[in-house]
Design a protein around this nucleic acid. Structure first.
Lengths: 133, 133
DNA sequence: CTTATCCTTACTATTTTAGTCAGGTTTAAA
DNA sequence: TTTAAACCTGACTAAAATAGTAAGGATAAG
């Protein structure tokens, strides 16, 4: 149950933007700072923007910034966007297996626990963790 | 951050054995009950046995049973064994990135949260969830 | 000694991941 | 109004992981 590289990059980028909350930061700058392949980060940032977590400005001196404050964005939300879902379960929505499906109830329960955990960690809480040198 | 089919099967099998704690259950029986491909389940059970969670008996009337009581085995432990690790982080042990690695501290923190959560759910807690029909 | 069961290793098709690439769009500034 | 810096998009690809399958060996009950 591993977090993809993609998600890891996304979380790190979001934390970097949280640290620099007042500035617009370009992908190039971000990619260098966090040692992330630039075109890959570009995709990731686009997803986060489409999901409503980022604002972008185009053109020279453009870049990204957080749309909300670091104490309003959870790691759970970031992961949900980048992983597609946080659900470890299989039969998400239209599953044929209905009542009493053991997979469903058990993994749903595990999922709820993980989700609650991740929804309690805010970007703000993670800013201090890093040194980046 | 999805749980693999393999792990899902393993968890379900463990719960089934927890329900049937006093009996020895064969892979064939388990596979039928839980609708899991038999030879695949065979591999999974072998891993859980090697890790010390199951006892096996060979020959006719043989099969598997839990080595410890359902209130002593956590979902976290089962997942740890089947997923290889529970760590969502990348640079597990011999990573070159040392002090102040942002990846490390942030994902480590997330990992701790998830691990704590999963280590608090026991097989016993999950027995009642199922109907299996 | 036969059969049910565990046990192990090797193989394979499919899917996912982690990118790359090529080009288009917007906008600040010269 | 031209240039260039940035965002934006979709298509492509190599490598790894996943979800099995296959084949046969070891053990023990009857």
């Amino acid at each position: 149950m591993r977090v993809s590289q993609r998600t890891e990059y996304g979380i790190r980028a979001m934390i970097a933007l949280a640290r620099d909350f007042d500035d617009v930061v370009s992908i190039k700058e971000l990619a260098e700072r966090e040692a992330i392949p630039e075109p890959f980060l570009e995709q990731i940032m686009a997803d986060l923007r489409r999901a409503g977590l980022l604002k972008s400005t185009r053109g020279p001196y453009g870049g990204y910034r957080l749309k909300s404050a670091p104490d309003e964005i959870t790691v759970g939300r970031v992961m949900e966007i980048l992983e597609g879902t946080l659900s470890p379960a299989r039969c998400a929505s239209g599953c044929a297996r209905q009542r009493g499906c053991s997979t469903r109830s058990v993994l749903d329960r595990i999922e709820r626990s993980i989700t609650e955990t991740l929804d309690d960690i805010y970007l703000k809480d993670l800013i201090g963790d890093t040194v980046d040198e």
